[in-house]
Amino acid sequence: MPGEAERIERIASLARRSSDDLILGIGDDAAIIRKNDTHWWLISTDSQIENVHFRRDYTPPRMLGHKALAVNLSDLAAMGGTPRFALLSLNLPKDIEQSFVDEILVGMVALADQYSTILVGGDIAASGNGLAMTITIIGECPAGRALRRDGAKLGDLIFATGRLGLAAIGLQLLQRGHRYDPALPIHLQQLILAHLQPTPRLEIGQRLAERNLATSLIDISDGLSTDLYHICQASGVGAIVYAEDIPVATHVPEEVNTTALENALNGGEDYELLFTVPRGRVAQIESLRAQFNDLPITLIGEITSEPGRMYLERAGERTPLRPRGHDHLRQEE
């Protein structure tokens, strides 16, 4: 069965059209549409589907509502945008209690209020196969300032925010019977919350756009290996990743059967930002770090001239790095 990238390319080949107001269509974290002479609209959509993205037995409804919006806000963060409005489509199974749905909305609207985003409409329909939510997010940015995947250049340095792989570890803990509880040890809470309640990195995305600092930007939703590959493909470049410098989880519970590095490279759902910066502007990253002193901003690699070829450098040796991150549609080998 074709993977997600192949499906998207197929859709794009069938649906690609042009318009004077369409700046960018299918292929990035959001479409870009001209709003007026000074601003562009940014529009994206994402879904949370029961037994694909979440299970009701381990996902508190407020956190589910938070995450459903957060993953959409993360797409705007990856464009350097500011969210404005959202539309919600709800597909409800017969067995769901109204109180559960109410709690989803409480969590969603709380996050929306945090980022001055207004839920303006949507759709409700019955579902014959579990709960599903699809949000369309509408944001904006100054004209000409949207950050895209296709601008990385030879010699650029690669940075990532936060710590990578925590969400994948948290998911494994949930699948093994753990549940979020404020009484859990802090390190377990952090891992589980990384999966259930991610933080969209809107502010740092906006700063990167305002300063015209990043040549390319993407959010890490599918895993570092896959999302870096998206940048390489779109930009026509390659990359070297320094394994020892990747900001991985500091603690991996014994019951988790993958390493911190494996989760960082291939786990997905971190919703951190991955971006490239010209070597000559790296000093400006320090001032950015001063603004976001609670958020690690880590140099993890460099851009090379080999299109689509990525390498993992460890102890002075380089081995091919293949995109092995999450893909709902890819058949397991």
Rank of each mutant, 00 (worst) to 15 (best):
P253E: 03
H328W: 15
L90T: 10
T226N: 02
L166M: 13
Q175N: 13
A126T: 14
G80S: 09
E4M: 09
I300V: 10
D227Y: 03
L42N: 05
S305L: 11
Q98H: 08
A143Q: 09
K153A: 15
I169G: 04
D95K: 10
D245R: 14
L265S: 02
P320D: 06
P307C: 06
N263M: 13
G122V: 04
S13H: 11
W40H: 15
E333L: 13
V71N: 12
T117H: 01
G223K: 03
A214H: 01
A5C: 01
Q172D: 15
E269C: 11
T250N: 06
L224M: 11
R148A: 09
V277D: 05
I138K: 02
E313Q: 13
G121S: 04
E254H: 12
G267S: 04
P93I: 09
S127Q: 00
P182A: 07
S74T: 05
T276D: 07
A290F: 03
G267K: 00
A160T: 15
G122H: 02
A290K: 14
L164R: 08
F159M: 00
P83Y: 11
I297T: 01
H251Q: 10
H230N: 12
M1L: 06
L105K: 13
R324N: 14
L196K: 08
S287D: 13
L312M: 07
